[in-house]
């Protein structure tokens, strides 16, 4: 069992996920969307109606964050950083030019992390996916060039996008989305004209 667990820990899909900040943040947000409402549900000190409302609100908030992050932040900042990289770091521009996109780099990195003899020397996919330079790196060198500056630039873009997207943009967007959704679900009532009038009088 321990051997299978150790194999799972060093598995290639998990390594790929753990290497990219965008995947990490997406998985972490998914965990939050499950964990936080889950813990509200099992809390016996909250009354059932409040519990339902809090669960729906928290889930909708995290779901909005995830959706916004995956559709807007990841493509924009990941690819944006990859495009800005060669202009910022002119001495590394040749490294950036070897890849078509940020995703192309991650594909290369996935193969570069695989064992040399068993997975790289004879692999037709490598021939199809990469240009001559990258093919040479993967197929002839046991420790291929990892192009750390390229990876670091993409990661920096991912982190910047994650922070701006999740900490600044998502709360604003979710604030606009959550209340109409909760009203549609029947969990929140629209303020009546009478209530509004009352507030106005007090103001």
């Amino acid at each position: 069992m321990i051997t299978s667990l150790a194999k799972m820990i060093i598995s290639s899909p998990l390594t790929t996920m753990a290497q990219s900040a965008s995947t990490q943040v997406a998985v972490e947000t998914t965990m939050k969307a499950i964990g936080r409402p889950g813990f509200i549900l099992i809390d016996n000190n909250i009354d059932p109606d409040t519990k339902k409302y809090a669960v729906a609100k928290e889930f909708l908030y995290q779901a909005t964050c995830l959706l916004l992050y995956m559709t807007l932040v990841v493509p924009l900042f990941k690819e944006g950083a990859f495009k800005i990289g060669p202009k910022l770091f002119k001495d590394h521009a040749a490294d950036f030019a070897k890849f078509k996109s940020a995703n192309d780099y991650y594909k290369y990195r996935k193969y570069a992390d695989k064992p040399f003899e068993s997975d790289r020397v004879v692999n037709n996919k490598i021939d199809r996916l990469f240009n001559a330079d990258l093919r040479k790196e993967l197929k002839t060198k046991e420790n291929p060039n990892l192009y750390t500056r390229v990876k670091g630039t993409i990661e920096a873009g991912n982190i910047l996008g994650s922070v701006l997207g999740l900490a600044i943009l998502a709360p604003q967007v979710s604030h606009a989305i959550i209340h109409p959704c909760l009203r549609a679900l029947g969990m929140e009532e629209k303020k009546s004209a009478k209530a509004k009038a009352k507030i106005d009088t007090k103001a």
Binding site: A18, V25, F89, K151, G152, T153, A156, I159, S162
Partner: peptide, 21 residues
């Protein structure tokens, strides 16, 4: 910025982005 990118490219830790967020 280049040095930060090199550090992020060489040794990215899962804790960095989540803590910063």
């Amino acid at each position: 910025l280049g040095k930060i990118c090199d550090a992020l490219g060489t040794n990215p830790k899962a804790t960095y982005p989540v803590m910063l967020i």
